[in-house]
């Protein structure tokens, strides 16, 4: 099995400023990988590179075996960190989620029964089916976030990329959401790559955590220390870690100069 996402020796710049370097990342089918790190650490940038929305200056990025610009984008669902939809666009919740189907439906075709069934299913997963006829502009921030998550799910992509999906969700909804992610992963066999700040919660269900600040550091699932030799092999010795919690085994508080 080829990895769904394979990044090697990646370097990314904005103008002359290097914001990511020496990045290695592997995400496999059926895995949930969470990227954590400080503000400005480059998490969103990394996701954009994978999505083909940002170019890179060095290294190799393979998504479903291809460089980002050649990837079949229908196979990648995306939830941006900042809501990117037009304000006051008059549209119902159901129709928004149905948009997630558009890329797969293809040109010149209309959504059919199956598309609508998938939309219903996704709305149920995020517990928004009771508001499906509601205008999106009449929802709260957290409800909107759920709708956009449902839209990404409705694509039924091979890879789901979520940038801080839990923003705006209440504690119960967060719990539910993470459970839902696991459920989806099991059912649809997607790979899920997400950014999150609630590392404590996340580390209990994800398969891998990557600490990112300009460069990346990998962790196994919580409780499993990562073998030293794997770390060395993948990252060399130049490791910088800025986010720690009780699950951060195998990493030591580096000198962050």
């Amino acid at each position: 099995m080829k990895p769904y996402i394979l990044i090697e020796d990646l370097e990314v710049k904005y103008q002359q400023k290097i914001v990511l370097e020496n990045i290695y990342l592997e995400v496999n089918k059926g895995e949930i990988v969470c990227v954590v790190g400080p503000n400005g650490g480059g998490k969103t940038t990394l996701l954009k590179v994978i999505l083909g929305l940002k170019d890179y200056s060095k290294g190799s990025v393979l998504v479903l075996g291809k460089p980002p610009e050649y990837v079949d984008r229908k196979e990648i669902g995306y939830l941006p960190q900042q809501e990117s939809s037009a304000r006051n666009f008059p549209i119902s919740v159901f129709e928004v989620v149905l948009m997630g189907r558009y890329p797969k439906i293809g040109l010149l075709k209309k959504p059919d029964k199956e598309d609508k069934r998938i939309v219903e299913e996704c709305l149920k997963l995020v517990k928004m089916e009771h508001l499906k006829e509601e205008n999106i502009n009449n929802l709260s921030g957290g409800q909107r976030q759920r709708v956009f998550i449902a839209r990404a799910l409705a694509m039924e992509p091979k890879i789901l990329i979520l940038d801080e999906p839990s923003t705006g969700l209440d504690i119960v909804a967060q719990e539910d959401f993470y459970k839902t992610l696991v459920e989806i992963r099991d059912k649809k066999e997607m790979a899920i790559l997400m950014v999150s700040h609630d590392i404590g919660v996340v580390s209990t269900f994800v398969d891998k955590i990557a600490c990112l600040n300009r460069t990346i550091h990998y962790h196994g699932k919580s409780g499993q220390p990562i073998p030293e030799d794997v770390l060395k092999k993948v990252f060399g010795t130049n490791i910088q870690i800025l986010v720690h919690d009780q699950h951060c085994r195998g990493c030591h508080r580096g000198n962050n100069d």
């Binding site: 999505l51 083909g52 929305l53 079949d72 984008r73 229908k74 990648i76 669902g77 995306y78 939830l79 941006p80 990117s84 939809s85 037009a86 666009f89 549209i91 928004v96 948009m99 558009y102 890329p103 439906i105 040109l107 010149l108 209309k110 959504p111 956009f148 839209r151 990404a152 694509m155």
Partner: peptide, 22 residues
């Protein structure tokens, strides 16, 4: 008429439309 649904998607959410290949 031909591209109505794609145009609606792009108008509603340019970033996600772009990421999904439109």
């Amino acid at each position: 008429t031909l591209f109505f649904k794609e145009i609606i998607f792009i108008t509603f959410d340019k970033t996600v439309a772009k990421a999904s290949g439109l």
